[in-house]
Amino acid sequence: MDQTLNSPHPTGSPARSDAPAQSASAALARSTRAELFRLSRWPVLWVLVGVWLVLNLLFAYVFSYLAYRSGSGAFGTADVAPDRLLADLAPEAIPRLLTNGMPMFGGAIMLILGALATGSGYGWGTWKTAALQGPGRPATMGGTLLSLAVVVVGVVAATFVTDLGSAVLISSVESQTLAWPELADTARALGGSLLIFAMWTAAGAMIGVVTRSPAVGVGLGLVWALAVENLLRGVAGVLDGLEYVTDLLPGTAAGSMAGALGGMDTADGDGAPGVLTVLDGGPAALLLAGYAVVAAVVTVALASRRDVE
């Protein structure tokens, strides 16, 4: 291999010195472009999004439809009237059920995505390289969060399209009259989905920055989301006063959002794991937005103030 390092351009007018002083918003825009470029080419992103979409399709539609066709009580649908089962698979049911898998399974996947998106850069040394490019560390991490927000919007849109396509397909196959969901209900469900996923993704990004390690970040995040919150809610049942705390946990807010949208109102009357009715929709939405904002602020502040390893 020829290892000759070519000599620099003969015209040595330094381009960087001619660049105009950059405003904060321009720096943020540049960082977002850079982060979108690398995130969109990251196989892990597509694997995680793919896993979520497949899981959602399987648990929301495929298994229920197979249970309906076979008339058996598979997948927790024992003793459920077949027409009730089919009603959950109609387009009309989408606003009720869109968020059902999001508080726990979908949320866990988005938490993994957030933690890997920020935590991996510490091992790769890419935060250091990015910090040396000049947009400033707040803008760099802000760009990451904005890019993740774009991903969240895309995932929610893809989930909705998958659900709608599946529901229309099942209704057609079963020769049901197509009953479209209410527009306002659909908008509410989409908004709730965005809030749930944004909260979990931002929480993941924060844990990735706090731990500066993808493995520790993902591990701690999952233990919290899947185990600790449930255990605390269990303890709250026997310990007076603790429910005031557990009622405000991120998972409670996400589950309550799904519950408020009608997630409990399924054929088996139980909803998916993680769906709760602890809080009303309004407080749940406020809490989710609050957690997302706090996580984002902590992420940017920590990334900006700490020494880059």
Binding site: Q22, A26, R30, R33, A34, F37, T129, A130, G134, P135
Partner: peptide
Amino acid sequence: RVMARFQG
């Protein structure tokens, strides 16, 4: 190209 984008 990622680093170039950071610099505009």
